[in-house]
Design a protein around this nucleic acid. Structure first.
Length: 663
DNA sequence: CCGCCTCGAGTTCT
DNA sequence: CTCGAGGCGG
């Protein structure tokens, strides 16, 4: 099919207009800000590429949607413009360079403020008395929301020492994060609409026909600019000082500098801190401080050239649940996974989100088709936070049959989980083989998910020992495999035969035996044969091994099928012994170390090995017993926990110095 | 028996 | 990374 730019542009315009309507008129946006911006950018790019299809009534040429009929229209004396958005350093640096070029200077003052996620509002004071409050609307005409704004405690009705005549203060009306939670609890109790975010809640609160309802919502206000009227000062920072005098709150986040480097640094530092603020911020606003310089830079049809929004990629996104599938893990556990309408969140496109179990579905009260909010904040794995709109009709029920082998599914007594109990279920075989080959286990290079899938489907492999019977010709018949790749995989398999016993024990996938327990067992029993002959009592004597774990290990090694596997593996020449632990020093004797973040030039596994070689222990979580935390770049929540508990925090360099090594 | 400390298991995307 | 649950000390 050929690409028709005119059609594509028309389609995008229609779509954007529809979303403008939802956003401005109905306070019920379906798209996240980022998604909307993406559509908008697509249209803008196309219109620039094909200027013959440009049009004065395109949404890129007008500012927003239409004013609603519920509130009286107010024409803004000076248009309320929106800001250009940037999501990366490069765009902000380009903006700064453009300003520098026009101003013929590299050192002009910039002021930086938090970009608060709320609703813009313009307040007109006549001789110090609040006479009109207007929403932005389409930028030229807004709505008269004076009666509602009158109820906001943050906004003075009267300003002492105000300049005579007109003073038009503009700012953001918003709701604190904790107030949104309280409000949503109340809304839920009354079976009312749940607000997806603080901005929607603020907008919804301002659109109430009855000001008494608005009065119950703890709305707040930050002043950030002005419209028409008498402003005597010459810089933005002086204007902000005046706002304070007049009794307005202003952004508590503030930086004045003539260096774009300071701005960029602040942007990255602030990303960590902004979540602790009581209100939602989706970025920063940077303005040229001097009004005379602002005038030189001027404005475009849509936004001032002397200001830019420096936004963070959204960490939450709103989308709909298309379907729910069931995945079968290596142990047979059946996990519901939501397929969602692809949505961009924290820099990646999310199309799947785990639901963990059926309790989670009940807790969320989720149905297929529902509009939901998902999050990827700080973490990697997408999580559905809540349902914002119950559009869905179709209930999500546990499957009667395993999606992989079609055998009936069982629910364990008193447990949440559902299981497929067929040991030859293809999904389980794939899971077991993939785990066996994984990095923490036998670490077989060249053996990824796609290869395992094909090996199992073509029935080349159904258990661990089959892997070692693969020959060159099996591998050559695999998709995308030629001599090179086949030989690499054979080499990978050969190398895996030499892994220590601890790795093999982990790879076997014994229930309750993870990497840690496998290592403890391997060090205590030295050989696989010793372990296989161990009694329940001997197993329980091992630290961290209790009734449940010992029984699981004992049962595994007394299962005839498992014993047969082990004999076959022995015949292929696999190593069944654990080498003596290499102790380089006792520098970390009795210490428990936790790593967080990415250490440059050292993998997590290598770092943990170093700790053990120096007589210490590692753990995955911080507690009062932790001796110290090694925090590198991009440290996560473990760092916060360490600070709370007063656990010492070391840099990677300090850690290396402690063991007499260097990076 | 309770609560803390850990570990095991599942899972996403580039 | 987070949740759920086993191990174990108090």
């Amino acid at each position: 099919m050929s690409f028709n730019p005119a059609e594509e542009i028309a389609k995008l315009r229609k779509e954007i207009e529809h979303h403008n309507h939802l956003y401005y008129d109905l306070d019920d946006p379906v798209l996240s800000d980022t998604q909307y911006d993406e559509l908008y950018q697509q249209l803008k790019t196309l219109e620039e590429q094909y200027p013959q299809f440009a049009s004065a009534d395109s949404p890129t040429q007008t500012i927003g949607g239409h004013a609603s009929a519920t509130f009286a229209p107010v024409v803004h004396g000076t248009p309320m413009m929106s800001l250009d958005n940037s999501y990366n350093e490069a765009d902000v640096r380009a903006w700064h360079e453009r300003c520098a070029k026009i101003l013929a200077s590299n050192a002009f003052d910039l002021v930086l403020e938090a970009k608060i996620d709320g609703v813009s509002c313009s307040l007109t004071y006549l001789n110090g008395i609040l006479t009109t409050a207007a929403s932005r609307g389409d930028g030229k005409t807004g709505e008269d929301i004076t009666a509602n704004v009158w109820t906001i405690k943050d906004i003075p009705h009267r300003i002492a020492h105000a300049p005579a005549g007109i003073l038009e203060i503009r700012g953001e009306i918003y709701l604190d994060k904790k107030d949104l939670e309280l409000l949503n609890e109340k809304q839920a109790a009354q079976n009312q609409l749940i607000f997806a975010n603080t901005r929607n809640a603020a907008a919804g609160s301002l659109r109430q026909k009855d000001p008494a309802i608005t009065a119950q919502r703890p709305l707040k206000f930050f002043a950030h600019s002005f419209g028409s009227g008498q402003i005597t000062v010459q810089t933005f920072s002086d204007f902000i000082a005046d706002c304070r005098q007049w009794g307005f709150a202003v952004s508590p986040v503030r930086l004045q500098t003539n260096s774009i480097e300071d701005i960029v640094r602040f942007y990255h530092e602030f990303d960590e801190k902004r979540h602790q603020l009581p209100f939602d911020t989706d970025g920063l606003v940077i303005k040229v401080n001097s009004f005379s310089q602002q005038r030189i830079l001027g404005v475009t049809a849509k936004s001032p050239r002397w200001a830019i929004a420096f936004k963070y990629p959204a960490e939450q996104a709103s989308t709909t649940v298309r379907n729910v599938l069931f995945s079968v893990g290596r142990s047979g556990v059946i996990t519901p996974v939501a397929q969602v309408e692809p949505v961009s969140c924290a820099g990646v496109v999310i199309s799947n989100a785990t639901l963990h179990n059926f309790d989670e579905i009940k807790r969320l009260d989720l149905r297929i088709g529902d509009r939901i909010i998902l999050e990827r904040a700080g973490e990697v794995i997408p999580k559905i936070i809540k349902v914002v709109e119950h559009i869905g009709r179709q209930d999500i029920v546990p499957p009667a049959a395993c999606p992989s082998c079609q055998r009936p599914v069982y629910q364990a007594e008193g447990e949440v989980g559902y299981y497929c109990v067929n040991p030859s279920c293809p999904a389980q075989i794939k899971g077991r083989i993939l785990h066996y080959a994984s990095r923490g286990a036998m670490d077989i290079e060249g053996m990824g998910e796609a290869v395992v899938d094909e090996l199992v489907e073509r029935q080349f492999v159904s258990n661990f020992s089959d892997l070692y019977n693969l020959n060159f010709f099996h591998l050559l018949s695999l998709e995308n495999f030629k001599e090179k790749k086949s030989q690499n995989l054979l080499d990978g398999l050969e190398a895996s035969k030499k892994r220590p016993l601890s790795r093999l024990l982990f790879a076997l996938g014994i229930a309750f035996v993870g990497a840690k327990t496998a290592e403890v067992l391997a060090e205590r029993f030295h050989t696989l044969d010793n372990l296989m002959q161990a009694s329940l009592q001997e197993l329980q004597a091992v630290p961290d091994v209790g009734v449940v774990v010992s029984q699981s290990v004992y049962d595994f090694f007394h299962d005839p099928a498992a014993r047969e596997q082990i004999e076959l593996l022995r015949q292929t020449g696999l190593n069944f012994t654990q080498p003596e632990k290499q102790i380089s020093s006792r520098a970390l004797e009795g210490k428990t170390v936790v790593f967080t973040g990415e250490i440059e030039g050292l993998t997590r596994t290598q770092a943990e090995l170093l700790v053990r070689q120096h007589g210490g222990k590692t753990s995955g979580s911080v507690s009062a017993k932790t001796s110290f935390v090694v925090a590198a770049k991009a440290a996560g929540s473990k760092l916060n926990k360490a600070q709370q508990l007063g656990v010492p925090i070391l840099t990677p360099q300090e850690f290396m110095a402690l063991i007499g090594a260097h990076l």
